[in-house]
Design a protein around this nucleic acid. Structure first.
Lengths: 239, 239
DNA sequence: CCGACACTCACTATTTCTGGGGAGTAAATA
DNA sequence: TATTTACTCCCCAGAAATAGTGAGTGTCGG
């Protein structure tokens, strides 16, 4: 590929990519094209497992994993609540732990500016595509303004590839819940007690219990709370 | 706007749009540009409410709503399970009710070809951007191949606008949970019982209960299941 | 037509959760 | 320094959830 590959070309190449190396190569090309410090695709599945590729320093990636920083990383927290691409400046960096995290990140070569695009899928899949750089606010502002559309597209393409390469991460396709089971799970998720759910659904509590149990079984859950949590993260119910 | 507005121009216009009319105008422009029969943005929120705009015949839209066709529409069902844009041909149109639905749709002026792009957000928000047309398979194939990227982008932009117009759908902010509370909620969400959580966290079950209760209080939840569900949908914990 | 599946109802014993109290330490913040 | 916040521990009684079985109806698709 030419040194000055355009985004179009890289995307076309990415579409054909069938090895992780090819994807990593595409990231490098894009990083070169956009002239940013880092570019990362990061995925969190509904089981809490992580996965990704990009150009963060290996040391930082390892440290991040090890410290389980995903728990305090405001980029994760912020994007998880949002629909749309977000500039890191807009996130909440207050809090002692977060500031320490930030300082550590910068010390590891992460730029002071960042732009992350959240992407969601069925079953609670959640991914982030991030570009990261060291520069002044104004410059970054212009960069994100200029390239937003292309970055959104790129995020989409990486996501598509990620799915191809991790078919096992795909939907823990659980058996679908029956309508009544969905009703039950939904009402439980919004705080109803068994008695209230049964009354709302106009069925006996005994019957309700059957639904809860079969839902628990289908979801591989060990108790009601677990079942509701799984139903939620797999997108089977919505609250 | 010029009759032959480009996608770029329409998107720029869409970004500035501050009325529903302007959005509807943008849809019409895009439909003209792509020369398709219909173009629709359709949103389903976490309370099951629907909302959208586009160029489906009003009669069909009303009928769809009235019959609650969202329950059997294979486009909805199929896209809900997928990450990526999907051609209607790839969906499952078997089933008696579904075939009847399909026949009815075509009779109401819906094209035989369709391409839908699913988009998801926090709190179970789910939206679809659809283009629909009447033509041969080969022609449609070429159309979608050619325009996929632009359609993905357009979907994103419509979605962004939809959020602006529905601010009440944005995440409720709640008090942040303390680290221990997050631990407790997380472990409960992955199926641990109180006893297991307490043991895992190396605290007494009594103490654990205090965390659960304060989390419940902060989240305005009526029981543990409710609290975990809220913590999940607000992105306070990740499972 | 038959089989699969969803939906409905019932009983009992055991385990777990919830809600009402009270109390002390350490750390961070005002 | 004073105050707030997080963290830890304890008791008890009543409410709710769970486990293990069983069984009859109706609908839909092959």
């Amino acid at each position: 590929m030419a040194t000055n590959a355009t985004v179009e070309e890289v995307l076309a190449e990415l579409e054909q990519a069938d090895t992780l190396e090819a994807i990593q190569g595409a990231i490098l090309e894009l990083q070169k094209y956009f002239q940013v410090d880092n570019m990362v695709y990061h995925w969190v599945d509904s089981a809490g497992e992580q996965y990704g590729y990009g150009t963060y320093p290996l040391e930082w990636a390892a440290h991040y994993q090890e410290q389980n920083y995903i728990r305090i990383d405001p980029v994760i927290a912020g994007c998880y609540k949002r629909f749309h691409p977000v500039d890191w400046k807009k996130l909440d960096w207050s809090g002692k732990a977060v500031r320490a995290f930030q300082a550590e990140a910068i010390a590891h070569g992460i730029g002071n500016q960042g732009y992350s695009i959240p992407i969601r899928g069925p079953n609670g899949q959640f991914a982030l595509f991030t570009v990261n750089h060291t520069c002044e606010d104004a410059e970054w502002e212009e960069f994100t303004e200029t390239n937003r559309r292309e970055l959104i597209l790129i995020a989409h393409y990486f996501n598509q590839k990620a799915l191809e390469f991790e078919p096992n991460r795909t939907p823990e396709q659980s058996q679908p819940l029956s309508p009544r089971e969905i009703d039950a799970m939904t009402l439980l998720a919004i705080g109803y007690s068994r008695a209230q759910v049964a009354e709302t659904l106009s069925i006996s509590e005994h019957t309700l219990r059957v639904y809860i149990e079969s839902a628990r079984f289908k979801l591989g859950a060990s108790n009601t709370t677990h079942a509701v949590a799984r139903a939620l993260s797999r997108g089977l119910i919505v609250v």
